[in-house]
Design a protein around this nucleic acid. Structure first.
Length: 785
DNA sequence: GCGATCAGAT
DNA sequence: CACATCTGATCGC
């Protein structure tokens, strides 16, 4: 039941909200009310937001006990006292309307004007805030910074009150630019507690040119059209598709550089006027006869999904209607329906031409990674592409994997330790319970991390008694690949302190990862694996290594066990070597590490074999995309079963070809699908990541010639891989390649930073081996390893 | 009968 | 697997 106060038009929650504006001259219509006595005082205890459905995670409440919602008006409730709108797109403002009464809506001035004029939101509930100006809302500091999306679009930066403020970044929808790195407000959010990220194009297959390039293309094309038509004495209609708000920059640039006006309909004009692009400069006109460049609605020139299909019928209709005999259309879209390198895709029919222009107002995959790398948040929370807005749902976790190594993994360790501590107190709770609980609770009861203890405080190893119970307790929270010897060693070196053991373990994991990551980041583009007929990777890299680090004996850090042999051999990295000198307990079984043999003397299987060992029962859910490829079976026409296989094979090939749109030959597609065991998704990713990683300066016929694909795959097949780089730093590849099969699992674990126990189940052995995640985040993209 | 919400089309 | 928006059906009061 709604509170009765809501019916009289007075927002009942308003008094609960304290607002202060600094450096700010705005007068708030409702500010006076803040001081009024509260009719119904808010509960002192902050309520946790209940999970609610919604396609975008933006639609779910802020999970960290602020009383704010961002772009989640449909999910408003009494638990929230202030609302933020990042920009004026319908999927973000959904739920706002003339009858909105729930609370103040904070947004930029352009968005505010649109809210009032288009959606008729009560003006007294709209608070417009200036970009880059700090305000205080409900005790929190809030800053809006430009999002480089549509006009008025911002990211919100939240800082909680209190001595240890939490910091959160919500990008809304955004396209990353390097200039963001010099924004002082954003700089303050490096290392933020969480980054709510617009993951629209969070997949390596999404690459697109800069907006500049695309603008250039549109402008030049229109110029050319005008010249040609002028010479021929005819008129050509130029149509540019846009939606209600967004991509205005294209229009402005065309007007400026082609020296012409832009025709828009009255609705669009209204919005442009509100946005401030109005008549002043004489750019936009509602008079269709004033210019040959017209703005047109979004879905008129063609349907855009699942791939672009032009609607020449309608286009011709419009052309004739407006008195032209030729027309050129532009569809600026982030989705690359065509992967042609030379020029952008063009569709032609008779006197009609449609240009598909890759113009995106969302970040590309690489831009997303750049941003995360810059902000280095403790956590990335995807806001697009997550089902039901579940933070820990499959999709969210899959998306987060793209940022492994770019986020601050220290936070994971902390979370883990919280859970660990908690566990002794609530022994009856399951791991999941504890983790879930601890993730929810704030870090208020901070406890000292044990790694700060000095070595001298540790008891002498000989006096330590390690009980089975301790080992069991510790092992429950370590990844399953940590063996008993290692657990014993960990406990010994921490003086039997289970928590400290765990802390030391995860500190090590982090350091190891960071080390690897640093060496990877130095020359990311130059990291390449090449096949080689001779020489083990371990040997090669150790020769290349120039240890430029100090050799001073380890100072204070706790003695640590070498958990994996890879860190014991000559390929040690800085920290390992440093610590290695005081190693307490070497792993006996795995002490050696050569490329060709393992402990048992068996030949090391290829990495492909190792990863590719598909479980007998193939997952049903994936079967739609999985196609069994066996070219030798194709001729068996009398075999009904094989007909299905052939058919699905064909479908897979067709699907792949359609996605890459002719950028590869049919033979290449078949070959690639064979390698991926028919998995179209993996094939696509391999295809695109190959393009990306090598920056293939594309030749005419095929972007990736067939032999390149084979090469790409061969590098995973080949046992004697060696990386091509002449860099001194050992790369993760070398570590991985030097491993015996038993070590590959832990190594990949480390490389992908899947270290905390709540991920154990997902990565457990069989299930893990066939996981495409390895191909996404690790091996195939060649980034972490 | 009205507004909020949703499926589906554009 | 979906860059955004609108329309009309359905739900719930």
């Amino acid at each position: 039941p709604k509170p009765s106060t809501e019916t009289n038009g007075v927002p009942p929650l308003l008094p609960r909200l304290k607002i202060a504006l600094r450096h700010h001259l705005h007068t708030l219509p409702l500010l006076a009310r803040v001081a009024h006595p509260r009719p119904h005082p808010p509960p002192l205890r902050l309520r946790r937001h209940p999970a609610r459905p919604g396609l975008r995670a933006t639609h779910r409440p802020h999970p960290h006990n602020s009383r704010f919602l961002v772009d989640a008006f449909r999910h408003a409730g009494d638990f929230s006292v202030a609302y933020f709108l990042s920009h004026f797109h319908s999927d973000h403002y959904a739920g706002l309307g003339p009858s909105w009464r729930r609370g103040l809506v904070f947004c930029t001035a352009p968005t505010a004007r649109l809210l009032a004029s288009v959606l008729s939101v009560p003006p007294e509930l709209i608070v417009s805030i200036d970009i880059d100006v700090r305000i205080t809302v409900d005790g929190w500091s809030v800053v809006a910074v430009d999002a480089n999306h549509c006009p008025g679009a911002v990211q919100f930066l939240f800082t909680s009150p209190g001595p240890n403020p939490e910091r959160y970044v919500h990008t809304g929808d955004f396209r990353y630019t390097h200039s963001m790195r010099s924004n002082p407000n954003l700089l303050e959010f490096v290392g933020a507690d969480a980054l709510f990220l617009d993951t629209t194009y969070c997949n390596p297959k999404f690459t697109f040119p800069s907006q500049e390039e695309s603008l250039e293309y549109v402008v030049n094309t229109i110029k050319q059209v005008k010249e040609e038509s002028g010479a021929a004495g005819e008129r050509v209609l130029c149509l540019i598709a846009t939606y209600v708000v967004g991509k205005e920059r294209i229009l402005l640039e065309v007007a400026r550089r082609c020296r012409c006006m832009i025709h828009v309909d009255s609705r669009k004009m209204e919005i442009l006027t509100v946005l401030g692009f109005g008549g002043e400069k004489g750019v936009f006109t509602e008079d269709a006869s004033a210019t040959d460049v017209h703005v047109i609605g979004w879905n008129i020139l063609g349907e855009t999904w699942p791939y672009f299909r032009p609607n020449f019928v309608k286009m011709k209709e419009i052309m004739v209607e407006r008195g032209y005999t030729k027309a050129v259309g532009f569809v600026p879209t982030g989705w690359m329906y065509e992967t042609k390198k030379e020029g952008f895709a063009v569709r032609v029919k008779d006197s009609l031409k449609i240009h598909l222009v890759p113009y995106s107002e969302h970040s590309s995959y690489d831009e997303l990674r750049d941003y995360v790398k810059f902000l280095h948040p403790k956590r990335v929370i995807p806001t697009v592409g997550v089902d039901g807005g579940k933070l820990d749902g499959k999709e969210a976790i899959a998306l987060q994997k793209h940022f492994v190594g770019l986020v601050d993994e220290t936070a994971n360790k902390h979370e883990f330790l919280m859970a660990f501590n908690r566990r002794s107190a609530h022994a009856s709770l399951s791991h999941e319970d504890v983790l879930a609980k601890c993730c929810r609770e704030q870090d208020g009861e901070e406890f000292a991390l044990p790694e700060n203890n000095s070595v001298s405080e540790l008891p002498d190893n000989s006096e330590i008694k390690i009980t089975e119970g301790m080992k069991k307790e510790l092992s429950d929270f370590l990844p399953s690949w940590v063996n008993q010897d290692q657990i014993q060693g960990l406990l010994m070196s921490s003086g039997g302190d289970v928590v400290q053991s765990a802390s030391a373990f995860f500190e090590r994991e982090r350091d190891f990862f960071e080390e690897a990551n640093v060496s990877n980041n130095e020359k990311p583009k130059s990291v390449e694996i090449r096949t080689s007929d001779h020489g083990s990777s371990a040997d090669t890299s150790s020769q290349q290594e120039v240890p430029s680090f100090s050799q001073k004996p380890m100072e204070h850090s706790a003695k640590l066990v070498n958990l994996t042999p890879v860190r014991m051999n000559s390929n040690q990295t800085k920290k390992e070597r440093k610590r290695g000198s005081s190693t307490v307990n070497k792993s006996k079984k795995k002490g050696k590490s050569t490329a060709s043999t393992e402990a048992g003397g068996r030949k090391q299987p290829t990495i492909t074999n190792y990863f590719g060992r598909a479980p007998a029962a193939a997952s049903k859910s994936e079967s739609a995309n999985k196609v069994t490829v066996d070219p030798h079976q194709n001729n068996g026409e009398n075999n009904n079963q094989s007909m299905d296989i052939v058919e699905s094979h064909k479908q897979g090939v067709d699907q792949l070809l359609q996605i890459v749109d002719g950028s590869m030959s049919r033979e290449s597609a078949i070959s690639l699908l064979e390698k991926t065991k028919g998995d179209v998704n993996v094939a696509v990713d391999m295809f695109y990541s190959k393009i990306q990683n090598n920056n293939v300066p594309d030749s005419d016929k095929s972007i990736v010639p067939q032999n390149t694909q084979n090469e790409m795959i061969d590098k995973y097949d080949n046992t004697n891989m060696v990386h091509n780089s002449s860099q001194a730093t050992p790369k993760m590849q070398n570590f991985l390649l030097a491993l015996s099969p038993d070590d590959v699992l832990p190594a990949v674990y480390l490389c992908t930073n899947k270290i905390s126990p709540d991920h154990e189940n997902m990565l457990g052995t069989k299930h893990w081996r066939q996981s495409s995640y390895i191909c996404y985040g690790g091996v195939a993209r060649n980034e972490q390893i």
